[in-house]
Computed example of a mutant assay.
Amino acid sequence: MTDHLDPGYAKAAAKESATKRGARSAQVWFAVGALLIGVSLGSARGWAELRADDTDSVRSALRTEVRAAQTRTAQLADERDELVEEISNARNMVLDLDGPDGAILEQVRRTQFAAASVPVRGPGIEVVLSEPAGERNTILDRDLQIVINSLWAAGAEAVSVGGVRIGPHVAIRQAGSAILVDNRVVPQPYVVSAIGEPRQVQASFLTSGAYMRMSGISQLYGVGFVVRDAADISMPAASVREVRIAQEQEDR
């Protein structure tokens, strides 16, 4: 007489109440999680904005230092060439060029020229390679290496890339989107200069595998490829490493 509610209704009501409490709890936790995520993203954004200014400052400072180092390197190279010329002139004044000293001096000159340790000047040809518009890394370091080797084979007496002389110790390598010649960045278009008898060097180069290769790359990928005469080419001395140990080999 006192229990007016069927037990089934009581269970259903209790279940519905528990479901509502679980839903409210989930909503609370969802709101807390969203709040924490928002705080984290806001903090990360603020930190990134603060770091962006620092990064731009560091990048600008590094660029300034690189330009200053490049300028100083160029100045030192010019001073080196001037000193080499002064030494050569002083040596010529001291030595007896008509006697035995003349033969020794001529041998020294040939050795210096072979080592690319003295500046040179003369006629020749230039091979100009340029990237397609809007593209990078189409021209690779091995392309320049192949062109240079072909110019040597064609009779070139001295070769430079972007004003950097190629010598026995000079390497050409790829560094990301840049090409380094003797650890110096060479801007494009890449101008490969070769001193030698222009007609002979050009005729031999035009029939070489390097010319066919670059012509194919030019047609397929739009790379700029020009071969032209150059009446007067000046090249600085190449970097010369100190030789600590050397031994002359006997002729076989």
Rank of each mutant, 00 (worst) to 15 (best):
R59C: 03
Q112W: 00
M1V: 15
I217S: 04
A18R: 08
L83F: 01
T71W: 14
R59T: 09
G224F: 09
H169Q: 15
Q107H: 02
A90M: 06
R228K: 09
G163L: 03
K20T: 08
G209M: 06
A77Y: 02
Y9E: 07
D53T: 09
E16Q: 14
A61C: 06
T19L: 15
L97G: 02
I233P: 00
A26V: 15
G155Y: 00
W29S: 07
G46F: 13
P100H: 04
D54Q: 08
N89L: 14
K15P: 06
A230S: 09
L76D: 04
G122W: 08
R24P: 05
I139K: 08
N92H: 13
G42M: 06
M1T: 15
T64P: 12
A237T: 00
V84S: 07
A178W: 10
D53V: 12
A133P: 03
L129G: 01
E49N: 12
P198D: 06
G46H: 15
E131Y: 05
I87N: 05
L105S: 05
V186E: 01
A31H: 10
S150T: 00
S25M: 12
E131T: 02
K15L: 12
A203V: 05
V147S: 01
A26F: 14
I104C: 07
P189T: 04
G99D: 05
I37Q: 11
L180V: 05
D98K: 09
P189S: 05
V128L: 09
E197H: 04
S117T: 02
S218N: 10
D229M: 10
P123V: 09
L220E: 13
I148N: 04
T55Y: 14
V108T: 02
Q219A: 12
E106P: 04
V159W: 00
A14N: 11
E242D: 14
D81E: 07
V170R: 03
A74L: 10
E126R: 06
Q188Y: 13
A69F: 13
S40K: 06
N137F: 12
A156N: 01
G122F: 07
E242F: 10
G209Y: 06
A31T: 11
L83D: 03
A230V: 02
S218Q: 06
P187I: 02
I195E: 00
Q75A: 07
D56T: 06
S57H: 14
N92S: 15
G38H: 03
S88R: 03
D56Y: 11
